[in-house]
Design a protein around this nucleic acid. Structure first.
Length: 875
RNA sequence: GGGCGAUUAACUCAGUUGGUUCAGAGUGCCUCCCUUACAAGGAGGAAGUCGGGGGUUCGAGUCCCUCAUUGCCCA
């Protein structure tokens, strides 16, 4: 035999992937078939493949390949996201390494560098996906900053502005002092940190020595205090109502105000109010018309309101001010304190709440259809539990801050012609702006008088259009492709971006297409390491996917990653799972090796083979039905497991063993032909999970198939299942197990032939006796009338089986087993009779349940009788 | 602090309307076997008070309450 004992994925993977590409199988064009569309969650353009992508894209590929085989026009759109903050940060860092500062560059120069970077590093991840076997339509690769795509983003901005859904507002934003940009709420990560709670006393104005004490975690913001607030119901402080206090260091006189917002239990019950630097304080400030004093610059250093601290960093100032407060007697005490602090998702800088003028989308009305259509099931979530989370967020949705103080991205199409709050127009081009601005202002405004907004849009403001704009559904409305492919079918993504992305795509879908963007959303879990930690670069606990593919083969990795990862569950990943996957591909490979080694002749077909074929036909169809059902429910792991067991247990361990001819014996033509057909049917259902090994075997297995490719072959049709055959095989399997057990207990080699006698107390379907004889390696299988002496015996469904043994009888062992069996059955009978003697059970339980119990009782009684007879016969 | 989940074998998970497809699967573990497809293999086996406690019911892994532990989302 010249075939390798083990499957070698390296030899076949590149070959078939190139072949598929050459044949253009991944490419889709609208036609008369039913479309099946999936849009990839676009990875960051400069990203590299990690385990999360592996999981996510394997699932998509499984779905897409199966849809293709089901005869649908499958279209999987790949692409990348410009990821404004992440990419800009990378470019800035790269420039810094080259000695260039962003601030020294013009916008145009910077963007030139950024595009160079993108062209060089962009899309590596897409190349990596090919190694995994992803069957994306590469001709349709999109990038969220492609010209057409960008145009649609700008159009949407203009449109929403026209509809009064976009407005410009001076609001508290999450400011990233490192990236120097505002962030959306979703980009802020709150973490618990050990900090300190400073108790500081403020002197009450117009007194010589009366004080109140506040508690704060941010003493540096004292310089921006414009009030002290107490709860109006707090009896301790009624004396303060209407008074003023003197802020330490700045010596500003500020009022004491009352607001129920203050938690009387926390700290001292006196809250200092800094409207410029805290969201809640800002709201209190608005309610009480307080002055707002900003003390920070955009980069987190103090401004001129910071007095002698001007120019110093906020954390440096915190230390310094602690000292100053202490020296001047204002600091009462410092307590340890745990509080939650917001960090920038991208730069990890501590977020500074900051008042600034930003662009917002009013989400109230816009989001309604998106909530309704998920709740009513038009858009299905898998698993469904995420609907709750979704609803909670959608019902409390806040306006979306969409401007970012960056250069890499879609520049906001707003043009300013003056300093006034309303002195701007929103439109696509400078020419239009001239016209609109002139009209709006009533003045003659030229190009030079206009200045475009410096900011770009939030990345998600472009990716929320992904399912539409990859088909140019906005720039070229009603075009053939958008009409054909939209809405897409399944979206596979991580629950972490349910709000960033999924919810907003649904919103955009209803707003711009009047329809859902996808029918099903499959949420994957987070890939974690063995210890349950999230996989991350900094921890270094993430295996390199490409290395895994090299070690275990793409098919092995695909199986390994899917074998136990139900939707929505985190996946604790361990490379041993890939080992299991690799072993699976190897198993199939060896099944092929076996079949290919047989020489066929026109000889009589053994009955055992005929029966095996009958059985496997039904078994296959039973599994196929189950697998189809699991796919319909998006239970991808379970579908894989069902296939795994069908292949390994049923096809290899049972079927092939039954039909296997003796050593160097030929096989009959019919059986071989049928076995190859079975093998092909198995390859077909395996294909979505293990595309490479199945394509390889498809081609070598039979000559007829060499002209076709499995990737474009049809998913098998389900045929009838003969339950009788399946039941009889189960019985046969039980007998075989008993024979094997006997051999093992008595240490009788498989090579030694045995006799089997049986007393048929209950009718037996004898059709699989030839199979029992073959697998059990029996010389004879005889139906007897009387018990056989000096024999090992066992019971299956009240039928008695005997294997006579020669000299080395272990009688004790036999007796022990009989007694164990008897004890168990007696206990079982007792519990059944307990139920039946309970009048309430008999009168309340449905008749069929009672009947079942009665039958159990009868069976148990019969079995006990047989066992007792045997025991007395042996003793 | 608010919301949503989870807890079943050593590990990862199934368990649809309460009742024979109810205590399951895969991996791991143990025993025996290098048997002529595959030791990346074969055959067999052990292993769980279904997180604790209450309740409803003839009957609870499944429904209700409560506690504990834990995860995620939001502030």
């Amino acid at each position: 035999m010249s075939l390798s004992k083990t499957y070698n994925p390296r030899e076949v993977e590149d070959k078939w992937y190139s072949h598929w590409l050459e044949k253009n199988y991944f490419h889709s064009e609208p036609d008369e078939r039913e479309p099946y569309t999936v849009v990839i969650p676009p990875p960051n353009v400069t990203g590299v493949l990690h385990m999360g992508h592996m999981l996510n894209n394997t699932i998509q590929d499984v779905l897409v390949r199966r849809a293709r085989m089901l005869g649908k026009n499958a279209c999987w759109i790949p692409g990348t996201d410009h990821a404004s903050i992440a990419t800009e940060a990378k470019v800035v860092q790269k420039l810094r390494e080259e000695g260039l500062k962003k601030s020294d560059l013009s916008r145009e120069e910077f963007l030139k560098h950024a595009f160079e970077w993108k062209d060089k590093h962009g899309g590596i991840i897409l190349q990596q996906l090919k190694k995994l076997g992803a069957s994306c339509d590469w001709e349709r690769t999109h990038f969220t900053m492609d010209p057409k795509y960008s145009e649609s983003v700008i159009d949407v901005f203009i449109d929403l502005h026209k509809k009064n859904r976009i407005y410009r507002g001076n609001r508290m934003v999450n400011w990233d002092p490192e990236a120097l940009t505002a962030l959306s709420d979703e980009e802020v990560i709150y973490k618990e940190v050990n900090s300190k709670l400073y108790h500081v006393r403020y002197k009450i104005d117009n007194t010589t020595d009366q004080w109140l004490t506040i508690a704060t975690t941010r003493p540096e913001t004292i310089l921006g205090d414009t009030a002290i607030c107490v709860n109006p119901n707090d009896k301790r402080y009624t004396n303060l109502h209407g008074k003023s206090v003197i802020v330490p260091i700045s010596n500003r006189v500020v009022p004491v105000i009352c607001d129920e917002y203050v938690d009387m239990e926390f700290g001292t019950g006196c809250l200092k109010i800094t409207p410029a630097h805290d969201t809640n304080d800002h709201e209190i400030g608005l309610r009480h018309q307080l002055e707002t004093i900003s003390i920070f610059n955009s980069n987190g250093t103090l401004n001129e309101n910071g007095l002698h601290y001007e120019g110093k960093d906020r954390f440096e100032v915190r230390k310094a001010i602690e000292k100053e407060l202490e020296q001047s007697g204002y600091l009462i005490k410092i307590e340890d304190h745990i509080n939650k602090v917001g960090f920038s998702e991208r730069t990890n800088a501590i977020i500074e709440p900051r008042l600034s003028l930003q662009w917002y989308v009013n989400m109230q009305e816009l989001s309604k259809p998106a909530l309704d259509n998920v709740m009513n099931g038009n858009v299905q979530f898998y698993p469904e539990k995420f609907k709750n989370t979704y609803r909670h967020w959608m019902e409390n949705i806040k306006d979306w801050c969409i401007s970012r103080q960056l250069w890499w991205g879609h520049r906001i199409p707003a043009w300013y012609y003056g300093e006034g709050k309303e002195e701007f127009v929103v439109c696509k081009t400078l020419e239009e702006a001239v016209e609109l601005a002139s009209a709006k202002s009533g003045k003659n405004i030229g190009e030079k008088d206009l200045k475009q907004d410096e900011d770009v849009l939030d990345t998600w403001f472009s990716s929320w259009l992904w399912p539409i704009s990859v088909f140019n559904g906005l720039t070229d409305k009603e075009n053939e492709e958008i009409n054909y492919y939209y809405p897409s079918n399944d979206l596979v993504t991580a629950p972490e971006i349910m709000f960033f992305w999924v919810a907003r795509m649904i919103i955009a879908g209803y707003e711009y297409m009047g329809d859902l963007p996808f029918k099903n959303v499959y949420y994957t879990g987070i890939v974690r390491d063995k210890l349950g930690r999230k996989m991350s670069k900094s921890l270094g606990n993430s295996p390199d996917p490409i290395e895994l593919i090299e070690n275990y083969g793409a098919d092995g990795v695909r199986v390994g990653i899917l074998i136990s990862s139900p939707a929505g569950n985190d996946l604790p990943f361990d490379s041993s799972q890939c080992e299991q996957g690799r072993n699976f591909t190897n198993k199939v490979w060896n099944a092929y090796r076996l079949i290919s080694s047989w020489e066929s002749k026109n000889i009589e077909q053994p009955i055992s083979s005929i029966k095996a074929i009958e059985w496997f036909e039904s078994k296959y169809n039973q599994s196929l039905e189950e697998i189809n059902d699991l796919f319909d429910k998006f239970r991808i792991s379970d579908a894989l497991m069902a296939i795994y067991k069908l292949v390994w247990d049923d096809f290899c361990s049972s079927y092939l063993e039954i039909i296997k001819p003796g050593y160097q014996q030929p096989i009959d033509d019919k059986t071989l032909k049928q076995s190859i057909l079975f093998f092909e049917k198995i390859l077909l259902i395996m294909h979505p999970f293990t595309p490479f090994v199945t394509e390889e075997l498809w081609h070598v297995l039979s000559k007829e198939r060499r002209e076709t490719d499995i990737i474009v072959s049809s998913w098998p049709e389900k045929k009838e299942i003969d339950l009788q055959v399946l039941n009889t095989f189960n019985y046969c399997d039980k007998v075989i197990t008993q024979i094997r057990n006997f051999r093992k207990e008595q240490q009788i080699s498989n090579k030694i032939k045995l006799d089997l006698y049986l007393i048929e107390n209950k009718e037996i379907d004898r059709s699989f006796d030839s199979v029992i004889s073959k697998i059990g390696n029996l010389t004879k299988l005889e139906y007897a009338e009387e018990k056989v002496a000096k024999a090992h015996s066992f019971l299956i469904d009240s039928n008695e089986f005997f294997i006579p043994f020669g000299e080395g009888i272990d009688m004790e062992q036999e007796m022990k087993k009989l007694h164990e069996d008897l004890d168990y059955t007696k206990g079982f009978l007792k519990s059944v009779q307990g139920k039946l003697n309970n009048e309430r059970f008999v009168s309340n339980a449905p008749q069929n349940i009672v009947d079942i119990e009665r039958k159990k009782e009868a069976d148990a009684l019969g079995k006990i009788e047989v066992l007792e007879k045997k025991i007395s016969a042996l003793s």
